[in-house]
């Protein structure tokens, strides 16, 4: 039968493709599975780059996976379950929803697999350590820079990615609270959420600007939100101050051209690197700090080229 032969042939070809993709494991290299919150996003690719760097440096095998969108909590669970079945030596994990992950993390802990949380971390005491940006402090820095640029008075707004993840909550709280504490003449008129989607954030920005003609600035709380805010500004021909978060080629270009005043950058490469390094440390019996601060910086057109900054920016 023609068709049966076709299909079976194709399946075996796929199986071969699959096995060809399998790296050959030497018994003495550590196998570390990293489950992140996303995959396509440049930020996560930079985390992956840092993890790969550490893997090469310490001679470990690292895989890196994440769901297509940050709402797919159950898909992340499936990835974690598959990673557990692989019986890796250690797991790096950035939870989309900490509660949902607890049963699987418990299973890993019971199996003696050390877990290192990264980025937004995990609300649980199972992870041995968390490699993360202090998002509250990073957003507070954005608030200070915003205040400086608009003369410490007037109305501002926030466009954030979501209100359920740790980073979303911390960055919004960090920015809003800092304004309330240190800049009493600045009013945060609204906080809106665009799921980190550029287009959606653009539309949100435009409606905020049309509703508040006297607005002086908007903080975009992650890469997608920040680009959306800057696009909205350009489309309406507004001259507000935009401060972004994270980097990426588009955002860097906007800062160079002046559409965006500046942005906070985390150190995604450092997050990936520190996660793998901590995992290997745990496997070697080292004691780890509860939180590994991977740092953040404010950058603008003036300091983008500095070697210290350029090293943590990604395209």
């Amino acid at each position: 039968m023609l068709n049966r032969r076709h299909l079976l042939g194709a399946i075996s070809a796929l199986a071969m493709l699959a096995s060809a993709g399998t790296p050959s494991f030497a018994q003495d290299t550590y196998d570390i599975a990293m489950i992140s919150k996303g995959f396509q996003h440049q930020f996560w690719q930079a985390v992956k780059a840092g993890a790969d760097k550490a893997a090469a440096e310490f001679g470990a095998n690292v895989t890196f996976e994440g769901p297509e969108s940050e709402s797919q909590v159950d898909r992340q669970m499936d990835m974690l379950a598959a990673a557990l079945s692989r019986q890796p030596d250690a797991i790096g994990f950035a939870a989309l929803d900490s509660q949902a992950a607890v049963p699987l993390l418990q299973q890993a802990a019971d199996a003696g697999i050390p877990i290192i949380a990264f980025d937004s971390g995990v609300d649980s005491d199972i992870p041995l350590s968390t490699a993360t940006t202090d998002n509250v402090a990073a957003a507070a820095l954005a608030a200070d820079k915003m205040a400086e640029l608009i003369g410490d008075e007037g109305k501002v707004a926030v466009v954030a990615h979501d209100q359920t993840s740790r980073t979303g909550i911390d960055r919004v709280d960090g920015f809003v609270n800092r304004m309330a504490e240190a800049h009493p003449n600045i009013e945060v008129v609204t906080v809106q959420y665009g799921a980190g989607d550029q287009l959606q954030s653009t539309e949100i920005t435009k409606s905020i600007l049309l509703a508040n003609p006297d607005l002086k600035g908007i903080f975009g709380a992650n890469e997608g939100s920040a680009i959306g805010v800057a696009n909205g500004k350009t489309e309406l021909g507004s001259d507000i101050v935009v401060i972004g978060f994270d980097s990426g080629a588009a955002q860097k270009g906007m800062i160079t051209s002046g559409v965006m005043a500046g942005a906070i950058t985390q150190n995604p490469v450092g997050i990936g690197y520190e996660t793998v390094k901590a995992a290997i440390g745990a496997l070697n019996g080292e004691t780890l700090p509860e939180v590994i601060d991977t740092g953040f910086f404010y950058y603008d057109a003036s300091n983008m080229a500095d070697p210290e900054i350029a090293a943590v920016l990604y395209d």
């Binding site: 493709l17 699959a18 095998n61 895989t63 996976e65 994440g66 499936d78 692989r86």
Partner: peptide, 14 residues
Amino acid sequence: LANGLRILSVAQEW
């Protein structure tokens, strides 16, 4: 398919 490819550490793109 999803599980097997993950167990084989096939890159997510593929």
